[in-house]
Design a protein around this nucleic acid. Structure first.
Length: 329
DNA sequence: CATCCACCGGAACTTAGGGTTC
DNA sequence: GAACCCTAAGTTCCGGTGGATG
């Protein structure tokens, strides 16, 4: 196909770190203020980047790590590497400490502590709420390192021991949803590097910036899919139709992606909740037991529910015995 | 107002499974 | 393949909880 529309897909994906950052000036300034002492070998301020998905938290963090702290920082996505052992392993690997992975966790801790005695480094834990255990924070809190923690959950660190929290002394940096005009600037910038000139009318970027509802990730995903669709249809330009289709897909995609993370039992629970709407936890469990031949014990059910809440599929309200669940997606 | 109810969630344990090294 | 190391899911046990109840 010589008339391709997207000539470089990379700027439309999450791995891409742009050179220019739009509409995050104040957050960037604050982040620099907190971290820059490290350049003069002083202790940086620990930071907590928090805000909804697709608001530039990760991009900003990675940008600053790349620009100022290359070789003396580690970026770990806790969704991907969620256990203490995995996190330690990734930290050591990204600082080019040779390890194989057979070492017990205690050995990895020793190595990291030895490293931290030698020099100050920066560690970024993205999606920090996905950590299976938080003891890694305890280890890092007493170490010689700056922390950049990222989450879209304001309560991610709430159940942390109060002493550790005060020890971390996190400076919160908030990332609000992008306004449509702001999103437009971001999308337009990325389009420049990815679409063939003239193949995506500005008006459609504008439409996308409205459809994405403040989430840059979704905006980029819509554009990428729309571009592909237009190519498949043999068009020279993207039209509104492709954007519309892509937008629908992007939303469906997110839900099916999340559903794919559920097991059979969890999916059944999700379906019950979808059919019946808001319902109390105890009743939900009973209904589930009726539907399944070999139901899990109630304690396991409660873990299921926590998982679904964490994934953002389900909302919980109330506490203790009066907990109620409701579908979000 | 004390007690109870019915569920919450932490902790410890079991079982199954995967990867690496020797 | 034995000897380790790890993770993940599920079970059992149990102290905690706060509105409902009489």
């Amino acid at each position: 196909m010589d008339e391709e529309i997207i000539h470089n897909e990379l700027p439309l994906t999450e791995v891409f770190i742009p050179t220019r950052l739009f509409h995050r000036e104040s957050q960037l300034r604050e982040l620099e203020r907190c971290l820059k002492p490290l350049l003069r070998n002083r202790m940086p301020e620990n930071v907590f980047l928090v805000g909804p998905p697709g608001t530039g938290k990760t991009v900003l963090a990675r940008w600053i790590l790349e620009s100022y702290f290359r070789g003396r920082s580690a970026y770990i996505n806790c969704w991907k590497y969620g256990s203490t052992h995995e996190v330690l392993k990734e930290i050591l690997l990204s600082l080019e400490i040779p390890i194989h992975g057979r070492e017990p966790t205690s050995e990895l801790i020793k190595r990291l502590e030895r490293l931290l005695r030698a020099r100050k480094i920066l560690i970024c834990l993205d999606e920090v709420d996905q950590l299976k255990r938080f003891d890694i924070l305890y280890i890092l809190a007493r170490g010689n390192c700056g922390l950049v923690l990222i989450s879209n959950d304001y309560h991610a660190l709430l159940h942390l021991d109060a002493r550790i929290r005060s020890r971390l002394a996190l400076t919160e940096i908030h990332f609000p949803e992008y306004k449509p005009e702001e999103l437009f600037d971001i999308l337009e910038d990325r389009v420049q590097y990815s679409f063939r000139p003239g193949s995506l009318p500005k008006a459609l970027i504008r439409v996308t910036s409205l459809l994405a509802k403040g989430d840059a990730r979704i905006g980029l995903e819509i554009l990428r899919r729309a571009g592909r669709k237009a190519e498949d249809k043999g068009l020279r330009k993207v039209t509104l139709e492709e954007i519309r289709e892509a937008s629908k897909e992007a939303k469906k995609l997110r839900k099916s992606y999340l559903l794919s993370k559920l097991n059979e039992h969890q999916r059944i629970i999700h379906e019950i909740l979808e059919k019946r709407g808001k319902m109390p936890s105890g009743l939900l469990y009973k209904e589930y037991c009726k539907l399944v031949k070999h139901p899990v014990v109630s304690r396991a059910y409660r873990n299921y529910m926590q998982k679904m809440v964490k994934l953002g599929l389900v909302k919980a309200e109330g506490y203790g015995r009066w907990k109620r669940y409701e579908i979000i997606l």
